[in-house]
Simulated scan of single mutants.
Amino acid sequence: MSNKEEIEVYQSSENIFADLGRSDAEEAFARVKLASQIADVIAIRNLTQAEAGVIMHLDQPKVSALMRGRLAGFSLDRLLRCLTLLGQEVEIIITDKASGSPLPAHISVVLPSMAAIINEMQTLHRPT
């Protein structure tokens, strides 16, 4: 006879912060997605942390923290500013909540595909 414990498994939502019950789950998840986009742009452009810091008006240790997902001190506004300073277009779309939806209105961040980002970067840095 086996002495194994049964472990209850739950299906995760897409947002780990919501799964953990954080009251600021949507904002925290949005900040992570924006930081991930910033890190992707820095990598695609082959920027050092110091070079990225100059562009984003941050010192290198702050860029390092951002790249490692340590986002204390990084508001949504600050992350959006970093993206625009890196040459990224940021579009904010506000819509009515779906009629009849029992869920509250929410915040979401939709990122472009990596292929689109790479294509855009190649276009920007193509010799003329």
Rank of each mutant, 00 (worst) to 15 (best):
S2G: 10
N3E: 11
N3P: 00
K4G: 00
I7C: 06
E8T: 04
E8S: 08
Y10I: 05
Q11S: 09
S12A: 10
S12Q: 05
S12E: 11
S13P: 05
E14H: 05
E14C: 01
E14R: 07
N15V: 00
F17I: 01
L20F: 08
L20D: 14
L20K: 12
G21V: 04
R22H: 12
S23D: 15
S23C: 02
S23E: 15
D24G: 10
A25W: 01
E27W: 02
A28Y: 04
F29Q: 12
A30S: 08
A30M: 08
A30W: 03
R31N: 13
R31P: 00
R31T: 15
A35I: 09
S36H: 02
Q37A: 15
I38L: 10
D40C: 06
D40A: 15
V41S: 00
V41Q: 07
I42R: 08
I42H: 02
I42M: 10
I44L: 15
I44G: 08
R45F: 06
R45K: 15
N46V: 06
L47A: 03
L47G: 04
T48G: 13
T48Q: 09
Q49F: 15
Q49H: 15
E51C: 12
E51M: 11
G53K: 09
G53I: 13
G53P: 03
V54G: 11
M56V: 08
H57K: 11
H57D: 15
L58I: 00
D59G: 05
Q60I: 08
K62F: 04
K62N: 07
V63S: 01
S64C: 00
S64V: 00
S64F: 07
A65V: 01
A65G: 01
M67R: 11
M67Q: 09
M67C: 04
M67I: 03
R68G: 04
R70H: 07
L71D: 06
G73F: 05
F74K: 02
S75P: 10
L76Y: 01
D77W: 04
D77H: 13
L80T: 09
L80G: 07
R81A: 09
R81G: 04
T84R: 10
T84A: 02
L85A: 07
L85W: 01
L85Y: 02
G87N: 08
G87A: 08
Q88N: 12
Q88P: 02
Q88L: 05
E89S: 12
E89P: 01
E89I: 04
E89Y: 03
V90H: 14
I93L: 13
T95S: 13
T95Y: 00
T95L: 05
T95M: 02
K97D: 02
K97I: 03
A98R: 10
A98N: 03
S99Q: 14
S99E: 12
G100P: 07
G100N: 10
S101H: 11
S101E: 12
L103M: 10
L103N: 13
L103Y: 12
P104S: 11
P104H: 02
I107Q: 09
S108N: 07
S108Y: 09
V109W: 04
V110K: 14
L111H: 11
S113N: 09
S113P: 00
M114C: 03
M114W: 03
A115K: 12
A115Y: 01
E120V: 00
E120D: 13
E120F: 08
E120T: 13
M121V: 14
M121I: 13
Q122I: 06
Q122F: 02
L124H: 14
L124N: 13
R126D: 09
P127I: 10
T128L: 03
T128V: 07
